[in-house]
Design a protein around this nucleic acid. Structure first.
Lengths: 147, 147
DNA sequence: TTAACTGCAAAACATTTGCACAACC
DNA sequence: GGTTGTGCAAATGTTTTGCAGTTAA
């Protein structure tokens, strides 16, 4: 929780540094994303916020997310689904994708993060980021298969 | 090249086993995908084939790819782009994505493939597949930055 | 005040679907 | 011959854009 406040302070600084206005919508969208662990789509975020911001429009959510991605405050997560999904998590982490329910679960794997890539890979180009993506079936789905 | 023929034989067997007809379109789409290393989208495939199959329609490409994915003959590649991209490569491999030109480069990393995942990850669920995705800038883009 | 932001509506883009004809087995 | 597949066109779903009114600095 304390982490979130720090992240929000960072968010406000970045916006100020780029001359972006601190609107109600931007603040709420960022708050919601930081506090969520479900990697929501634009539409999911819109639904999460419709009680709090009844006049919010879906295109504002799309525009706001695009702005955040450009500033590096938010990442677009690559998934098999047709809708783009987003996360505001900063720390290096990886994803487990449940092929059955579509849930994305974050995990950390420090020994992977620190491993040096083989030269054959390093020589492809300049590496910015390396991530592990696991596909499988989460425990919840596994257990409810007995219907 | 020889590998491709084997893969195409496998493709024909699978189709037969599932009662699927061996149409000109399916054969050509699969051939093109097997021989390509660019992980094309449905639209790219359609353009690659329009000289050879002038009456081919884009929706047939979509339908055919969906069928192949269902049969496990083709994989949908997860990319940041808005169009889905596909590959017919069978061997375990990983992807380098160039953030600048959007090119996807395959690489192998056997010591990663063989590593046992930490228990904390194994306990999330049943793992079907684990892949590394690297983001960066490929050598080609790096070198042409001097314009 | 004024430049940037939002909401609305419409457009653009990617993908899917219904139907009638054509092609495979 | 009968079933499955294809092409056409239209529908659907997701994301983007133009514009005029609204809001933060």
């Amino acid at each position: 929780m304390a982490d979130h406040n720090q992240q929000i302070a960072h968010f406000e600084n970045i916006c100020r540094a780029h001359g972006l206005k601190m609107t109600h919508q931007r603040l709420e969208i960022f708050h919601t994303l930081v506090r969520s662990s479900e990697h929501p789509s634009a539409e999911t975020l819109y639904k999460m916020l419709e009680k709090k911001l009844p006049t919010l429009s879906l295109d504002t959510v799309y525009r706001t997310l695009a702005t955040f991605v450009e500033l590096g405050l938010v990442k677009r997560v690559e998934t098999p689904g047709s809708q783009a999904r987003f996360e505001a998590k900063i720390e290096q982490h990886h994803h487990f994708f449940c092929d059955q329910c579509g849930q994305l679960i974050d995990f950390t794997w420090h020994s992977f993060d620190e491993v040096q890539l083989p030269d054959s890979i390093e020589s492809i180009g300049t590496i910015r980021d390396k991530n592990v993506v696991i596909h499988g079936v989460c425990n919840h789905c596994q257990n409810s298969d007995s219907d």
